[in-house]
């Protein structure tokens, strides 16, 4: 009896070992598939232009070279787009917070009489929307076309983010806390500013990240609403260079240019694109270690109550 049990155990552990090894190999393959393109952009951005174009860059940078970055920083459009994007992201995120956090706080109060009505009011907008053109026409009639306001005001409140924040408040600011404060003569204003906000640094961080990255990465609103090129945010500039393949070099190619020079120019354009990807991702990359922890937390809070 004992022997049978023992043999069984051994057979299983062999199976489990095979399972463990397979799992390890599988996960490693996934890791490589995800990581390699990211890694490749980094090493290509600091390699020699002709090595990148010739496909000689595989595992390590070839002939350390920063001319791609030099081109990026010499490009007026990119630099202006970068400054614009920082400004829009900052303003947009501030407006988002000013609208979202108070709304979420109010919605988290258990005995607030209008709660149900307001929730329906917001839920409706999650499932049906007027669509592209009617929204565009409303923005236009508000005189917001081609201004920053078109990018930051219409989406000032994301219902999903508001629900995440509300769920956070519900669990971190129990009704008893408010009741206790109220006995001491505290109204909602005082409670919100003196007690709720100081206790909510975590959720404010999550909101800043959710909204901030949304603004930074958004190109659609700018595509629809912005007309003047000098007001374009970075993503729209990136679109013309990376996707539409617009000539992006600081000096123009002249028709008399020798074939070799032309080739070098083309290679430099390719190299510049890799550098551009890195430069445009720097703000997010700096935040990433910090972002990861909080983003994940946000997904968890959101999934508790959808």
């Amino acid at each position: 009896m004992a022997r049978i049990l023992n043999r069984n155990k051994q057979k299983e552990s062999v199976q489990d070992k095979i399972f463990d090894v397979t799992l390890f190999i599988l996960l490693t393959i996934i890791l490589i598939i995800v990581a390699y393109p990211l890694y490749f952009v980094i090493i290509a951005s600091v390699s020699d232009p002709s090595a990148v174009a010739g496909g000689h860059v595989t595992l390590f940078p070839v002939g350390l070279n920063f001319s791609g970055y030099a081109e990026v920083f010499k490009n007026d459009k990119v630099m202006r787009g970068f400054v614009n994007a920082i400004f829009y992201t900052f303003m947009g995120t501030c407006i988002n917070l000013l609208v979202t956090i108070p709304t979420a706080y109010a919605m988290s109060r258990k005995d607030f009489a209008g709660k149900k009505f307001v929730m329906y009011f917001y839920m409706v907008t999650m499932f049906i929307s007027g669509g592209l053109i009617p929204t565009y026409l409303v923005v236009k009639s508000m005189g917001m076309l081609d201004t920053m306001w078109a990018l930051v005001v219409p989406g000032a409140l994301s219902v999903y983010n508001m629900i995440v924040a509300r769920t956070f408040f519900e669990s971190s600011l129990p009704e008893e806390l408010f009741e206790a404060a109220r006995v001491d003569g505290c109204d909602h204003f005082k409670f919100f500013f003196k007690i709720a906000l100081p206790l909510s640094k975590a959720i404010i961080a999550i909101m800043v990240l959710y909204y901030g990255i949304g603004h930074w990465n958004n190109y659609f609103s700018a595509l629809i609403y912005m007309k003047t090129e000098t007001k374009f945010p970075l993503q729209l500039v990136l679109r013309s260079i990376l996707v539409q393949n617009e000539a992006a070099l600081s000096q123009q190619v002249t028709s008399q240019a020798a074939q070799a020079a032309l080739q070098a120019q083309r290679e430099l354009v390719e190299l510049m694109k890799y550098s551009l990807i890195i430069v445009s991702s720097v703000p997010v990359m700096i935040l990433y270690p910090f972002v990861q922890k909080h983003f994940v937390k946000g997904v968890m809070i959101g999934s508790v109550k959808g």
Partner: peptide, 11 residues
């Protein structure tokens, strides 16, 4: 509750 309504107003 009027502060709560004020909080909700912008949104």
């Amino acid at each position: 509750d009027y502060p709560l309504w004020l909080f909700l107003l912008p949104g």
